[in-house]
Design a protein around this nucleic acid. Structure first.
Lengths: 158, 158
DNA sequence: TATTGTTATACTCTATAACTATA
DNA sequence: TATAGTTATAGAGTATAACAATA
């Protein structure tokens, strides 16, 4: 009963269609999210490892820089890279300019895994095909105005 | 250099605008996601607790049912509810029909927290206001066709 | 002296197994 | 005998502090 009242209160009135529109978009995304998490399980890694693969896919990276982008402690990066290395996805290479630094680079297998991650993240929902090219163009145009000039940033759903 | 090749390979050609459209939508969502995670930190809880609050917001729930929906072990639910109870967000109430069962219900403070969670999750990006009502209607219509009849399910970004 | 990466250690989150109180 | 919830315990993930190698 109280729950029903809360539900009622949370329902968008006809005037704030902005909220309702966003609600629909969130629903679309949440629905797609599970597919991405399933891939991580499939690759035998966690979302943090997935994010790391995506960063390394862009470019090799020192441990310290990974810590900064992952917003975690350097000691944790050691553990994360240990696991990716055990999986055969990355290699530690000594930097030639600074012998303190280790550069983490993707192996061939790591590249393949990172490519699968990238494809899964950006694989459109099947229903996208049911829109006409014109409709997709309209959707893209409206969505990019929502993004406010923001590109798809190299972060990922965890 | 290899990285550049990979980037090139991953760029959507002009023909598969479906992928590009989805990429834009993913970008919009990832950008909004941090605001939601910040709220969880603000409430002093983790994403799992947030998900639990959302479930309890819909209706009180036995421990066992929470475990099923959260897809985790019952012993873990004990810990999760312990913490929400310590925060003052929920109460354990004995079931009147089965004395083995404990019903978890939101307190007044819990309702307030759950309302904030719900509002944050469905708060549209500021840029939504820059669309006209007609454009929002078009976006909503297109997005709902992407959802394939799926409502905004009671899960949440972690 | 400062910085990079690692190790030792502790805390949190989650799961498995054993326990209790009901049914 | 089976089920709801708890407790004891162990395994991951992450953080802090101390350390070795290098700048």
């Amino acid at each position: 009963m109280e729950a029903a009242l809360r539900t009622l209160r949370s329902m968008a009135g006809p005037q704030d269609d902005a909220a309702e529109t966003w609600r629909v978009l969130v629903g679309v995304f949440l629905y797609q999210r599970d597919r991405f998490l399933a891939l991580a399980r499939d690759l035998g890694i966690t979302p943090v490892h997935v994010q790391t693969l995506r960063m390394l896919r862009a470019a090799p990276c020192p441990m310290r820089a990974l810590a900064a982008e992952l917003q975690c402690d350097a000691s944790n990066v050691t553990a994360i890279i240990d696991r990716l290395e055990a999986r055969g996805y990355v290699e530690r290479r000594p930097s030639v300019t600074d012998r303190r630094v280790k550069l983490v680079v993707l192996t061939a297998e790591g590249i393949s895994a990172a490519d699968r991650v990238e494809a899964a993240l950006y694989e459109p929902p099947a229903a996208m095909a049911s829109l006409t090219a014109t409709e997709r163009a309209a959707l893209r145009s409206l969505a990019s105005r929502l993004a406010g000039g923001n590109d798809a940033a190299p972060t990922q759903p965890s």
